[in-house]
Design a protein around this nucleic acid. Structure first.
Lengths: 346, 346
DNA sequence: CTGAAAGCGCTTACAG
DNA sequence: CTGAAAGCGCTTACAG
C-alpha cells in the first residue's frame, strides 16, 4: 500500500517556502544563497515527509536521464560479462547513475539490434557502453556516434570512440617471465588455432619473454582448439618431444584443464614434474583443478569501471580520452599465483 | 553531432494537425477515431522526421517508467546470474521494458543496500526482481512491498511476493531414474555438506528415485565440500567400498570434476567402468571434461523470463500469481545428456 | 535571500 | 473527427 507520493510542493508547503527554494537548498545550487535558518527548515521538512525527488521529472527538465546503457554480446555465453557488469554498475552508482542492460547477438561481425538501441535512446540514456569480447576492431553502429560512447574489448575502426582492452601481451609475458625466474628454460606454449586479438597478444608476449631470456621457442609452440580437448592434444605432443618442456603455458584455462589430463595420463605430477600455467582465471576452473592453477586474470571488473569513468569524463566535457581514442587503453592482466608452478627437476 | 531533437510538436506542425491528434494516432488510443487520411499524414510526418517519443516525458505523464529493476546477489561470483539477466532482459524487451541492474552484497542474510533500492524507486521503476540463489526463505526488504515485486531463488517468508525456484528435487530424481533405466542398481550420491535448499532437494530426489526402483541407498551417500576436492574425496570413499557403486550422482558439476580425478587415479574409465552425472550444467565444466559430463541444468534463463512475465501480469492487475505466492513456482531442471553414462559392466 | 512563472515533452479528459 | 488546455514533478533564468 504505497501512501500518497510526496512531491516538492508538499515539502514547500510544509516548510512554508516556495518550491524554488526547496529545489535550491536540496540541490545546493551554486551561486544561490539561502539563509541557514530557511535551509534547515526545508531539510527538516524533506526529511520528515520522506521526500525523494522524482528522477524522471528532473530528467525531463535537465535533459539528462542519469542512465547509462550497457550493450553486451551474449552475456550468457561468456562467463566474463558478469564482472564487466559488476564493475560498471558499482562505478555507476558512485555517480548516481543507473545501469541499464541490453543483450546483443554474438556473431563474427557484431550485430546490434537497432530496435534495442533505440529503446535506450528513447529513454534519453546519457551514454552507452558497447562491450564485445572477440574482436579487434569494430565498426560501431552509427548511433554510437550520436552520444557519449565507449567500447570494451575492441577498438573503434574510426578511432573516435574511446576503448579499453586487456593487455594480453603483457599478461602473457609476465607469466612466462615468472616461469623463467623459477628456473625453467624449456617452456612450451599451447597456442589456440584462432585468429583473434587474444591469440596474437598471448603468443607475442610468450615470444617476447622467451627472447628476453635468450630462450629457444622452436618446436615448443603447438596449436590446438582453445578448449580442454585442444589443450590435451597439444600437451601430449609437447610431452612426446625428445626433450620435452619442463613448463607449459596454456593459451587459456580450458586448455590447461586438458593439459592436466595429459600430464596425469603420462603418470607425471604437477608441479613436481611439470609446471602448468593458464590464462583467463575463468571460474571455476583454476580452483577446481588439483593442484590449483596459476593463471593470468582478465581485468573485466576494471574494464567495466573504466567504461563508466570514461563516460563520466565525456559528460563533463573532458575530451582527453576521446583524443586518445585512436589506440585502445590496455589494462593490466594480473598474475594469479596458485599451486601449479615449481622449479624444474634438477 | 546529434541534430536537433524532433518532438511531437514538430510532427504536428509538419502534418498540419494538433499534437493531440499526433499522440492519438501514434499511440492508437482506443475509443478515438481519426480519419484514415489524417492518420496517414501523421504517420508519414513522424516517419519522415524520424520522430521518437521521449519515454521520460511519457513516463512523467503516465506515471509509469517502463523500467524493471533487477537486484542480484553478487552477480560476479555466481556464474548463473548471467543467464537470469539474459532471460529477464529478453522477456522485458518483448514488452518494451528496460532492465536496470543493481548488485547486492552476498551474505548469509541477504543485505540490500537501501540507497541502491532507493535509486531504483527514485527512477519510478515499475517493478522489481530480487534474485537470490542461496536461500530458502527470505524476508523481503520492506520497500519490496511498495510496488510489484517478485523473488527468484527463494520464497517470501510472508507469502505475499510471488517467487520462483528450480525444482531441484525433480531434477535429481530424473537423472537418477535415467541411471536406473540404464541398468544401474548401485548408485552413489556425493552429497554436499551444506544445509541449503539445493542440497536438501537433490538428496530427496535421489532418495525418491532410488525408493521408486526399490534400490538400497545405505552407505551410498557420502558427503563432502561442494567443490572438486569434496567430490574427489567422496568418490574415493565410494570406490573404496567392498561393493562399490557402478554409477555416481554428484551434487554438482564441481564435485563431478573431482570425481573424474578420483576415477582416473584408480585406473578406471568413464563411462565404461563407472558412470558419473552432475548437476548445475555449470559452464565450462561439463564440456571441458572428458568424456563430456551428463548433468542437470538449472533453469536460470527461464527464471529470469518468469520474473518479468509475472511482473507484467501484476502490472495488468492479474493477481493470480500473488494469490499463489505462499508456495514458490518450481521450474523444471532439464537433463542434459552427454557422454558420461553407460550401462554397468555385465 | 526568496519566489512567480515558464517550460522540459508528453497524454488525456473535455469540448466542440 | 479534431484541438485547446491542463498537468505530470521538477529546474532555472529572472525579478524583486
Amino acid at each position: 500500500m504505497p501512501r500518497k507520493k510526496v512531491g516538492i510542493r508538499d515539502v514547500a508547503e510544509h516548510a512554508g517556502v516556495s518550491v524554488t527554494t526547496v529545489s535550491h537548498v536540496l540541490n545546493e545550487t551554486p551561486h544561490t544563497r539561502t539563509s541557514e535558518e530557511t535551509a534547515t527548515r526545508v531539510r527538516a521538512a524533506a526529511e520528515e515527509l520522506g521526500y525523494r525527488p522524482n528522477r524522471l521529472a528532473r530528467g525531463l527538465r535537465t535533459q539528462t536521464s542519469g542512465m547509462v546503457g550497457l550493450l553486451t554480446e551474449e552475456i550468457a555465453t561468456t562467463p566474463y560479462a558478469g564482472r564487466i557488469i559488476l564493475g560498471a554498475q558499482e562505478r555507476a552508482s558512485d555517480d548516481n547513475l543507473t545501469l541499464a542492460i541490453i543483450n546483443t547477438q554474438l556473431s563474427a561481425r557484431p550485430i546490434v539490434d537497432p530496435a534495442q538501441v533505440q529503446a535506450f535512446l528513447d529513454r534519453q540514456i546519457d551514454g552507452i557502453i558497447y562491450a564485445t569480447v572477440f574482436h579487434d576492431v569494430v565498426v560501431a553502429p552509427p548511433t554510437l556516434h550520436t552520444l557519449p560512447a565507449v567500447l570494451i574489448g575492441a577498438k573503434d575502426r574510426d578511432g573516435v570512440i574511446p576503448s579499453v582492452v586487456p593487455d594480453e601481451r603483457a599478461g602473457a609475458a609476465s607469466v612466462v617471465r615468472m616461469l623463467v625466474q623459477t628456473g625453467h628454460t624449456r617452456i612450451g606454449f599451447t597456442d589456440a588455432a584462432e585468429d583473434v586479438p587474444a591469440t596474437r597478444g598471448r603468443l607475442i608476449g610468450y615470444g617476447e619473454a622467451m627472447a628476453e631470456a635468450g630462450l629457444p621457442t622452436d618446436g615448443l609452440v603447438v596449436a590446438g582448439t582453445s578448449d580442454a580437448a585442444g589443450g590435451y592434444e597439444a600437451t601430449r605432443a609437447l610431452l612426446a618431444m625428445k626433450e620435452p618442456p619442463t613448463a607449459v603455458f596454456c593459451y587459456d584455462d580450458r586448455m590447461a584443464m586438458g593439459a592436466y589430463r595429459a600430464v596425469a595420463e603420462r603418470g607425471l605430477r604437477i608441479p613436481e614434474d611439470l609446471s602448468i600455467v593458464g590464462f583467463d582465471d575463468q571460474a571455476p576452473i583454476p580452483t577446481s583443478l588439483f593442484p590449483a592453477l596459476t593463471t593470468v586474470a582478465l581485468p573485466h571488473y576494471e574494464m567495466g569501471e573504466w567504461a563508466v569513468s570514461t563516460l563520466v569524463d565525456l559528460f563533463n566535457g573532458d575530451d582527453a580520452s576521446r583524443r586518445r581514442a585512436a589506440e585502445p587503453v590496455r589494462l593490466t592482466c594480473p598474475l594469479v599465483v596458485r599451486d601449479s608452478v615449481a622449479p624444474p627437476r634438477a
